[in-house]
């Protein structure tokens, strides 16, 4: 039988989503939007293709999310946080769909990808807020 998770575990799991995925998605986003497609492409490549580097491996944001979701998804679902985690997953899926074509994306698609990172960050924040007992939005 699986033991119920402690509130500290749930909070730490949600924090991991926020830290590894939400924060990483817009890690070097500037205050003012780049306003230049190539600079935006450069930043998205930096943040999304190199979301984690460890032991000689570089992981993209969707790969980091997959690892985090595999490790923490069940615990978060058991804590009733499946839906907010799904919201993060939906944003990550939009990133996953566009990321392989990043070098060739036009300005509109780059903006869509940037918007998807925003949604990932927002959803991860909301997940953490709920995990810390913030109630529903």
């Amino acid at each position: 039988m699986t033991e119920p998770a402690t509130s500290d575990e749930v909070r730490a799991a949600a924090y991991r989503v926020r830290h590894d995925v939400g924060k990483a998605a817009r890690f070097s986003a500037p205050k003012e939007s780049e306003g230049d497609a190539e600079r935006l492409r450069e930043r998205l490549a930096r943040d999304l293709l190199g979301a984690r580097r460890a032991e000689g491996k570089t992981l993209s944001l969707p790969e980091v999310f997959d690892a985090v979701a595999a490790a923490e998804g069940e615990l978060l679902a058991r804590a009733g946080l499946g839906a907010p985690l799904d919201a993060v997953a939906r944003g990550v899926e939009r990133v996953r769909a566009l990321l392989p074509r990043l070098p060739a994306l036009d300005g509109n698609d780059l903006a869509r990808l940037d918007e998807a990172t925003r949604d990932v960050a927002r959803a991860a924040s909301e997940l953490l807020r709920l995990a810390r007992g913030g109630g529903s939005a």
Partner: peptide
């Protein structure tokens, strides 16, 4: 603390 959602400007802050 990193700002939340669309207001992120982590690096500059």
């Amino acid at each position: 603390t990193y700002a939340v959602g669309e207001e992120e400007d982590a690096g500059e802050s």
